[in-house]
Simulated assay, not measured.
Amino acid sequence: MAGAEQVQDRSFPLSAGILFGLGLGGFFDGIVLHQVLQWHHMLSSWYPINSIPNLELNTLWDGIFHSTTYVFVVIGLFILWRTAHRRHLYWSNKLLAGTLLIGWGFFNVVEGVIDHQFLGVHHVNELMPREQWIYWDVGFLAWGLAMLVAGWLLVRSGRAEQATARTVRA
């Protein structure tokens, strides 16, 4: 059992990569879609950006959203640092990239379903005619699902490489 615990201690912390992916997905959404392209803001379907008070409210909620994604990145960094600092860590580009994609894809799917479809607080591209919003929303969900699948495949491949490396060392 001690051998299994030792191997487990060397495993790549998947939760760190997933949290990084959640945070990076949120940063991309907030920076690129909210700020640079200005396609939408956090509550722009409920409070359209047609007055200063609505812009202030949306900016506040964009900031709360960014703060939450920042917390995901900080926690992911803490987990990775704690794991790597205490013992030798099996470093894997596939596991890191895969978990980042899983986290980012999970962000897109959850945010797309809850914010775009269920609550309707905003849509991906509100600069387009309203009847086209659904296409952008579905594209955002498809992008998220594609990242989830690609991430899962990379994690699966990375775990196989990790198992092979353990066998070679044993």
Results as ranks from 00 to 15, higher is better:
residue 1 M to A: 15
residue 3 G to R: 15
residue 3 G to C: 11
residue 4 A to R: 11
residue 5 E to D: 15
residue 5 E to R: 15
residue 7 V to N: 07
residue 10 R to Y: 06
residue 13 P to F: 06
residue 13 P to T: 12
residue 13 P to N: 14
residue 14 L to W: 04
residue 14 L to K: 09
residue 14 L to S: 03
residue 17 G to M: 02
residue 17 G to D: 07
residue 19 L to F: 15
residue 20 F to T: 07
residue 21 G to T: 13
residue 21 G to F: 09
residue 24 L to Q: 00
residue 24 L to G: 01
residue 25 G to F: 08
residue 26 G to H: 06
residue 26 G to K: 08
residue 28 F to E: 03
residue 29 D to R: 04
residue 30 G to T: 03
residue 31 I to E: 01
residue 31 I to A: 06
residue 31 I to T: 12
residue 33 L to W: 07
residue 35 Q to G: 05
residue 35 Q to L: 05
residue 37 L to W: 00
residue 40 H to C: 08
residue 40 H to W: 10
residue 42 M to A: 04
residue 43 L to W: 07
residue 43 L to S: 00
residue 44 S to E: 12
residue 44 S to W: 00
residue 44 S to G: 05
residue 48 P to E: 03
residue 50 N to R: 13
residue 56 E to G: 11
residue 59 T to R: 14
residue 60 L to M: 14
residue 61 W to E: 08
residue 61 W to R: 01
residue 61 W to A: 01
residue 66 H to R: 05
residue 66 H to A: 12
residue 69 T to M: 15
residue 69 T to Q: 07
residue 69 T to H: 12
residue 71 V to T: 12
residue 72 F to Y: 10
residue 72 F to V: 04
residue 73 V to N: 02
residue 73 V to G: 04
residue 74 V to N: 08
residue 74 V to F: 08
residue 77 L to T: 09
residue 78 F to Q: 15
residue 79 I to D: 11
residue 79 I to W: 02
residue 82 R to G: 15
residue 83 T to W: 04
residue 88 H to D: 15
residue 89 L to C: 07
residue 89 L to Y: 15
residue 91 W to V: 06
residue 93 N to Q: 01
residue 94 K to Y: 00
residue 95 L to D: 05
residue 98 G to R: 07
residue 99 T to C: 10
residue 100 L to H: 05
residue 101 L to V: 04
residue 101 L to N: 13
residue 102 I to F: 09
residue 102 I to K: 00
residue 103 G to H: 06
residue 105 G to N: 07
residue 107 F to Y: 05
residue 107 F to S: 00
residue 110 V to F: 11
residue 111 E to D: 12
residue 111 E to I: 01
residue 112 G to F: 00
residue 112 G to E: 01
residue 113 V to F: 12
residue 114 I to F: 04
residue 116 H to K: 01
residue 117 Q to P: 06
residue 119 L to D: 00
residue 119 L to E: 00
residue 120 G to K: 10
residue 120 G to P: 11
residue 120 G to E: 03
residue 123 H to P: 03
residue 124 V to D: 06
residue 124 V to E: 10
residue 125 N to E: 02
residue 127 L to P: 13
residue 127 L to T: 11
residue 129 P to V: 11
residue 129 P to D: 02
residue 131 E to I: 08
residue 133 W to I: 08
residue 135 Y to W: 13
residue 135 Y to S: 13
residue 135 Y to F: 15
residue 135 Y to G: 14
residue 136 W to T: 08
residue 136 W to Y: 09
residue 137 D to R: 13
residue 139 G to D: 05
residue 141 L to K: 07
residue 143 W to Y: 15
residue 146 A to H: 10
residue 149 V to C: 14
residue 151 G to V: 09
residue 151 G to Y: 09
residue 153 L to I: 10
residue 154 L to M: 13
residue 155 V to E: 05
residue 157 S to G: 05
residue 161 E to M: 02
residue 162 Q to P: 03
residue 162 Q to Y: 06
residue 163 A to E: 10
residue 164 T to I: 10
residue 165 A to G: 12
residue 167 T to H: 11
